[in-house]
Amino acid sequence: MFYPNSPQTSPQLTQIPYGQQYAMMQRQIQQPYHPFATTEPQARLYPYHYQGPIQQEQGGFITQQSTAASPQYVQMRVTPVDQSIMSGYPNQTANGSSSSSFNYNIHPQQQQQQQQQQQQLRHHAMPVGSVPLQDDRYRKQLIVNYLAPDVTSTDLHELFSRFGELDGARIIYDKQTNMSKGYGFVYFCHAEDAKEAVERMSGYEFHGKWLKVGYSTNPLNIVPSNSSPYVHAGSRGAAG
């Protein structure tokens, strides 16, 4: 039997160049792979992502010199942007860049009308829970959420009447099932009393439920100042 490094198959040491006398086997001759043993700084910083320098080929596509990437890492192929796409944008300079302001050559009167329309939209648009300043009635009506099913309009009136005089209180019921929808409205005579009720009743436990109280901004629920107070009856038909 002959071994790869046996004296019968191995040459004389004098015939082997210096430095390879003890590297006779194939696994010894093959050098191990060192990912950080390279002179390129990109490979030292990113050993798993770097795959060699990027070269520009004919046709405008950018390719990489090395083989496919590892399945664990996804390499994105980048193509140059066609400058003709950006030619339609206004205020574009000769080098292809555009300024931040756009001039669509709008007539001054049209621009003024658009600004007025935007101001009107901001004036009428009102986020949930906010209180408008032009109508004091919005500051007097509250919406009470997360009410228990057994709470009546009379219970709601008695709960909030300790903060001040009320114009009314009612629970909203479903017309088909005649069941409470879980929320109601309270109408105060003074805005200061309503503000105190919002601050003190939010998070209050009532009939096993934690109440959420806020201003009601729905104009359909506003009680006119010259109208008669609501009837605080315990029956659902009268309260709904």
Score class of each variant (00 low, 15 high):
Gly203Asn: 02
Phe102Ser: 04
Leu45His: 08
Asp82Thr: 13
Lys140Gly: 01
Gln64Ser: 05
Gly52Ala: 13
Phe102His: 05
Tyr104Ser: 01
Tyr215Cys: 00
Leu133Ser: 07
Val198Phe: 10
Ile171Asn: 02
Pro11Met: 07
Phe102Gln: 09
Pro108His: 08
Asp167Cys: 04
Gly59Leu: 13
Ala94Lys: 04
Gln64Glu: 07
Gln176Lys: 04
Asp82Ala: 12
Tyr73Leu: 03
Ile54Asp: 02
Gln58Arg: 11
Ala233Asn: 04
Asp82Val: 12
Ala239Leu: 03
Thr177Trp: 08
Ser98Pro: 08
Leu121Cys: 11
Ser98His: 13
Asp167Tyr: 11
Asp136Phe: 06
Glu192Cys: 03
Gln75Cys: 14
Lys140Ala: 01
Val213Glu: 00
Glu40Asn: 11
Gln56Lys: 02
Gln117Leu: 12
Pro229Ser: 06
Tyr73Lys: 02
Ser216Ile: 00
Gly19Asp: 13
Met76Asn: 02
Tyr104Cys: 06
Ala233Pro: 07
Thr14Asn: 11
Val74Ile: 12
Tyr204Glu: 03
Pro219Ala: 00
Leu220Gln: 13
Ile106Ser: 04
Glu40Asp: 14
Val81Phe: 14
Ala233Glu: 03
Asn103Lys: 09
Gln15Ala: 05
Tyr187Ser: 01
Ser153Pro: 03
His190Leu: 05
Arg139Ser: 05
Gln8Asn: 06
Gln51Ile: 14
Ser227Pro: 14
Gly59Ala: 09
Pro132Phe: 13
Ile106Gln: 14
Arg162Val: 07
Gln110Gly: 09
Ala37Lys: 03
His49Tyr: 12
Ala148Pro: 02
Asn218Ser: 02
Ser228Gln: 08
Gln20Lys: 04
Gln110Trp: 14
Val223Cys: 06
Ile54Trp: 10
Asp174Thr: 01
Gln116Tyr: 14
Val128Phe: 12
His124Glu: 02
Val131Gln: 08
Trp210Thr: 02
Tyr104Arg: 04
Asp174Ile: 01
Asp193Asn: 08
Ser228Arg: 11
Thr9Phe: 15
Thr63Gly: 11
Leu45Cys: 10
Ala125Ile: 13
Gly96Thr: 05
Tyr173Leu: 04
Gly129Cys: 03
Ala125Met: 13
Ile16Arg: 11
Ser228Glu: 05
Thr39Ala: 13
Gln26Val: 14
Gln113Pro: 11
Ala43Val: 14
Gln113Met: 14
Ile171Tyr: 06
Gln30Pro: 09
Lys175Ile: 10
Lys209Met: 00
Gln20His: 14
Leu156His: 07
Leu211Ala: 01
Phe160Ala: 02
Glu205Ser: 13
Asn145Ser: 01
Pro4Leu: 10
Met86Ser: 03
Gln92Tyr: 11
His49Val: 13
Ile172Ala: 00
Thr154Arg: 06
Pro132His: 13
Ser227Asn: 12
Asn218Phe: 00
Ser101Arg: 08
Glu165Val: 11
Gly59Arg: 11
His232Leu: 11
Leu147Gly: 02
Gln15Trp: 15
Phe102Thr: 11
Tyr230Glu: 03
Glu158Asn: 11
Pro32Asn: 04
Phe36Leu: 05
Val198Lys: 08
Thr152Val: 12
Ile106Phe: 10
Val213Thr: 02
Pro7Leu: 07
Tyr18Met: 11
Ala169Phe: 01
His190Cys: 04
Gly168Arg: 12
Val74Thr: 08
Lys140His: 02
Ala43Cys: 15
Arg170Pro: 01
Phe2Lys: 02
Asn103Asp: 01
Gln20Leu: 14
Pro47Ile: 15
Val144Pro: 02
Tyr33Thr: 10
Gln83Asn: 07
Arg27Asn: 06
Lys209Gly: 00
Gln56Phe: 14
Gln58Met: 15
Arg170Ser: 00
Gln114Ile: 13
Phe61Ala: 03
Gly234Lys: 09
Gly240Asn: 14
Gln21Cys: 06
Ser100Cys: 13
Ile172Leu: 02
Tyr173Met: 10
Asn178Gln: 12
Ile143Thr: 00
Phe102Cys: 06
Gln176Met: 13
Ser87Met: 09
Gly96Ala: 05
Pro53Glu: 07
Gln58Leu: 15
Ala191Ser: 09
Ala191Phe: 04
Lys209Ser: 00
Tyr46Lys: 02
Gln8Trp: 11
Gln114Ser: 09
Ala191Arg: 02
Ser10Met: 13
Tyr33Gly: 05
Gly240Gln: 13
Gln109Gly: 13
Glu192Leu: 03
Phe185Val: 00
Leu211Tyr: 01
Val74Asp: 03
Met126Thr: 04
Glu192Gln: 05
Tyr50Asn: 05
Tyr3Gln: 04
Pro17Ser: 06
Gln176Ser: 11
Tyr22Pro: 05
Ile29Thr: 06
Tyr89Gln: 05
Lys212His: 02
Leu156Ser: 09
Pro17Val: 14
Val144Phe: 05
Arg27Leu: 15
Arg44Trp: 15
Ser99Trp: 15
Gly214Arg: 01
Gln72Tyr: 13
Ser10Asn: 07
Tyr187Trp: 01
Leu45Arg: 11
Glu205Gln: 04
Ile106Ala: 11
Gln15Tyr: 06
Tyr18Asn: 11
Tyr173Asp: 01
Met86Pro: 04
Gly184Gln: 10
Thr38Ile: 08
Tyr183Met: 03
Asn221Pro: 13
Met25Trp: 06
Met201Tyr: 04
Ile16Leu: 11
Gln176Leu: 04
Gly240Lys: 02
Met179Ser: 07
Gln115Ile: 13
Ser216Asp: 00
Gly129Trp: 12
Tyr187Thr: 00
Glu165Asn: 12
Ser225Arg: 15
Glu192Phe: 13
Thr93Cys: 10
Gln31Glu: 11
Pro11Tyr: 15
Val223Leu: 10
Arg27Cys: 15
Gln26Phe: 15
Arg137Lys: 05
Gln176Gly: 09
Gln26Met: 07
Phe185Arg: 00
Leu147Cys: 14
Ile143Cys: 00
Gln12Met: 11
Ala68Arg: 12
Asn178Gly: 13
Arg162Asn: 12
Thr93Lys: 11
Gln92Lys: 12
Pro11Thr: 08
Gln141Pro: 00
Tyr50Leu: 09
Asp193Phe: 01
Val223Ala: 09
Tyr48Gln: 04
Leu45Pro: 07
Gln58Gly: 11
Thr39Ile: 12
Ser180Pro: 11
His34Asp: 06
Gly240Val: 12
Gln31Phe: 10
Gln115Pro: 10
Met76Arg: 05
Met126Arg: 04
Ser235Trp: 03
Ala125Gly: 11
Tyr146Phe: 05
Asn226Val: 08
Gly52Val: 13
Ser70His: 14
Ser225Ala: 06
Thr93Glu: 13
Met76Gln: 07
Gln116Thr: 03
Thr152Asn: 04
Pro4Tyr: 15
Asn105Leu: 15
Ala43Lys: 02
Leu45Asn: 03
Ala37Ile: 14
Arg77Ile: 15
Glu158Thr: 10
Ala191Asn: 05
Tyr50Glu: 03
Ser98Tyr: 15
Phe163Gln: 01
Thr152Cys: 06
Thr38Tyr: 15
Gln92Phe: 15
Ala69Lys: 08
Pro149Ile: 04
Gln117Cys: 07
Pro32Gln: 07
Thr9Pro: 03
Thr217Asp: 01
Gln65Lys: 05
Ala233Gln: 09
Asp155Met: 04
Asp167Ser: 02
His190Phe: 05
Phe36Lys: 05
Ser228Tyr: 15
Asp167Lys: 01
Pro127Asp: 06
Ser99Glu: 10
Gln120Leu: 13
Leu156Trp: 02
Thr93Arg: 07
Gly88Arg: 07
Thr9Ala: 06
Ser227Gly: 11
Phe188Ser: 00
Arg139Met: 10
Lys209Pro: 13
Lys195Phe: 12
Ile171Cys: 07
Val78Met: 10
Pro47Ser: 08
Thr152Asp: 04
Pro127Tyr: 11
Asn145Met: 01
Gly182Leu: 08
Ala169Met: 00
Gln112Arg: 08
Pro71Ser: 05
Thr39Asp: 08
Ser153Glu: 03
Asn218Gln: 01
Gln20Gly: 05
Gln134Thr: 08
Gly203His: 03
Ala23His: 08
Gln12Ile: 07
Pro17Gln: 13
Gln114Tyr: 15
Glu192Asp: 09
Ala148Asn: 11
Pro71Asp: 06
Tyr104Thr: 08
Ser70Arg: 05
Pro17Met: 15
Asp174Met: 01
His232Ile: 11
Pro53Asp: 08
